[in-house]
Simulated assay, not measured.
Amino acid sequence: MQKPSIFFLIPLLLLLSPLSTLAALNGRCTGSKATGDYKQSGICIKTSTCKKYKGTTKDGACPYDPDDVKCCLIDNCAPSPDGDLGPHSYCEWTSDKDSICNEFGVWFNNRCPGGDNYKCCEIP
């Protein structure tokens, strides 16, 4: 009998790995607790990062992440060296087709945690 190929074993091991490896740090909030604004705009980040950005956290919306990672909603974008944004700014996923920012707002870089697809939107 021939031994299994290493190329067969690697995908099999990945499939059998625990769900904790599916953590989505800097990803969208998910699960049954991710509803309303949290599902639309929330990001799974460390609670310390959420606090730094003056966001609010929601438990249970980042189900495969470690305990110190929670869904964070940021209502006012972080200031920049050239000043604060108005009161109508928030962090949101740029890929959301229904975002009001695509029609009426302005996207700003480097005002929100996460990657390039999670930015600050200001409605003037």
Rank of each mutant, 00 (worst) to 15 (best):
C72P: 01
G31F: 02
L12R: 11
N76E: 09
E103A: 15
S41K: 06
A78K: 15
R28E: 04
W93A: 05
I45H: 00
P81D: 10
S17K: 11
E103S: 15
D67H: 10
S89P: 02
D68V: 14
A23I: 11
A23V: 11
L16Y: 07
L73P: 00
P63Q: 08
L16N: 10
P66H: 10
Y38F: 14
G27E: 00
K51G: 07
F7C: 13
D68W: 10
T30W: 03
S48Q: 11
G86Y: 02
P18I: 13
Y64H: 13
N76Y: 06
S17H: 11
L16K: 08
D68S: 13
K33P: 05
I74C: 00
T47Q: 14
D84I: 02
L13T: 10
D67A: 15
K97G: 03
I45M: 06
R28H: 06
T56V: 13
C71D: 03
N26K: 01
D37W: 02
P11C: 15
D96L: 15
K97F: 05
P81G: 07
A78G: 04
C71Q: 04
D98I: 05
D67K: 11
C101S: 06
Y90A: 03
T21P: 01
I6G: 14
A78M: 08
T35L: 06
I45Y: 00
A61S: 12
G55S: 03
L14D: 10
I74V: 08
L15K: 07
L9Y: 07
S48V: 09
D82K: 15
P81K: 05
C77Y: 01
H88I: 05
L15H: 09
